[in-house]
Design a protein around this nucleic acid. Structure first.
Lengths: 115, 115
DNA sequence: GGAGTATATTCGTAATATCGAATAAGGAGC
DNA sequence: GCTCCTTATTCGATATTACGAATATACTCC
């Protein structure tokens, strides 16, 4: 799939990149439950409005969410349901991932012994 | 899932980040078909050995792949099959993503009134 | 031990991401 | 028009990433 189509690989990488930030994952999770307004996100996530808006721009440009004006506010919704499946998969992977993966630790390289 | 667990969100973001590069997606796709050696990847992907090794390190630290020495070579395999499902989902999303998402273009959002 | 092969890491640099502060822009209501 | 509320964008500083080149490490064979 990606090996023979560089453009598709680039698109997929952009999508993955859009997912690659805790705040954006939380935004998407909020959206998965139904459309929400930006103001709700700033309260829920405890981040500056500008910051939320910046993250939303990343998600928008990746094609993962859609923005619709409703009067003064803007309602965001997931553009595809596959996004919800992606979240679920990431969640399950994150759940049973060995601790080592996160803490930026020294890495234990085979250092031979084992094998 | 991520809203109430910052650590899990961070892990999931790290996993997504590991996926967020065309070369790493291609590496994972190669691995999905069965273990491969680094030398194979350098040939298949047409990248420098050091570069492949650097990308493999990212995948390793994210817990997505496992490295096993086999004599002089090192064989890499997917650590979890959920990774294959992630790839498939990314592929389908990338397939029907509107073009606009990739080209870093000026963004055309509803902008309704055409300003 | 030495030479050769396969893989990993370090270093320097250019490109990119993240964040807050400030500012701009859309819309409602007066 | 002006003001308030909501959201978006720009700017500047800092941090992180990607890459090649060079170097280091692990292993095999002689």
């Amino acid at each position: 799939m990606f090996l023979e189509d560089d453009l598709k690989a680039a698109r997929a990488a952009e999508i993955a990149h859009a997912l690659a930030h805790p705040a954006r994952l939380q935004i998407l999770e909020s959206l998965a439950a139904g459309g929400v307004y930006v103001m709700d996100l700033t309260r829920t996530l405890g981040r500056r409005q500008a910051n939320i808006s910046q993250h939303l721009a990343v998600l928008r440009e990746a094609g993962l969410v859609r923005a619709e004006r409703e009067g003064m506010a803007v309602r965001y919704t997931l553009r595809r349901e596959a996004v919800g499946q992606l979240l679920a998969l990431l969640d399950s992977l994150a759940a049973d991932l060995p601790l080592r993966a996160v803490g930026r630790r020294r890495r234990c390289r085979g250092r031979r012994g084992r094998r």
